[in-house]
């Protein structure tokens, strides 16, 4: 059998979950043996070059670009996994969810004391930048997600265990000590 192909992305996340993927130390060598990476910040492949087996998603969706990428992942990956607090529940970025997006934008670009050079009172609107959504969405509210790995970030052992379980098609053994995250 050829190596399973993995893709990863960070949406509205802090890259902490990706750091945790790397945090498996020397097992990263085993991982390279076990799988092949496709689109991912880890190898800097920008576009999908083939269909993948597993997609790991860090972060929820805060803008139109996130939606686009997430939908692309759904199309290209057999299995999608929400990795970490942000992907599963919105996480820290979702703190803005109680506040209307107009207010957030006005505060950030017009009213806040740190705004100094914005003399024309512009809220960025260039056609090349992604559009901000009305709130931050967990991934499963956008596309179908198959598995969820809790943590902020999920511990390296947890990500490792989950990947191996998925690849070898066996149930996950996740003791409390591994999933507990405070």
């Amino acid at each position: 059998m050829s190596k399973p192909v993995i893709a990863t992305t960070s949406l509205a996340g802090c890259f902490g979950c990706h750091m945790s993927i790397l945090d498996i130390d020397e097992k990263i060598l085993d991982l390279i043996e076990l799988v092949e990476f496709n689109k991912s910040p880890i190898d800097d492949i920008k576009h999908f070059t083939k269909q993948c087996d597993i997609g790991l998603i860090e972060g929820g969706c805060c803008n139109s670009e996130n939606i686009h990428v997430l939908r692309e992942f759904r199309e290209h990956c057999k299995i999608l996994v929400s990795v970490g607090e942000c992907a599963i529940m919105g996480g820290l970025p979702a703190f803005r969810n109680g506040i209307p997006v107009k207010e957030c934008l006005r505060e950030a670009y017009l009213l806040s004391p740190s705004v100094q050079a914005n003399h024309e009172y512009i809220i960025p609107n260039d056609e090349d930048i992604p559009m901000i959504l009305d709130k931050v969405y967990p991934c499963h509210e956008i596309v179908k997600i198959d598995y969820f790995l809790p943590g902020c970030p999920p511990r390296a052992e947890l990500i490792w265990e989950a990947l191996v379980a998925l690849i070898k098609n066996r149930p996950m053994d996740l003791p409390y000590e591994v999933i507990k995250f405070d």
Binding site: S64, V101, K102, R106, I122, N125, M131, L133
Partner: peptide
């Protein structure tokens, strides 16, 4: 249907477009 989150992209960026005056091409 198998999956329906009720999410609508056009709806969810409406406020931003209004606030920023962005022109949609």
């Amino acid at each position: 249907t198998d999956f329906d989150s009720g999410f609508n992209l056009a709806e969810s960026v409406k406020d931003y477009i209004e606030a920023s005056g962005r022109v949609i091409v």
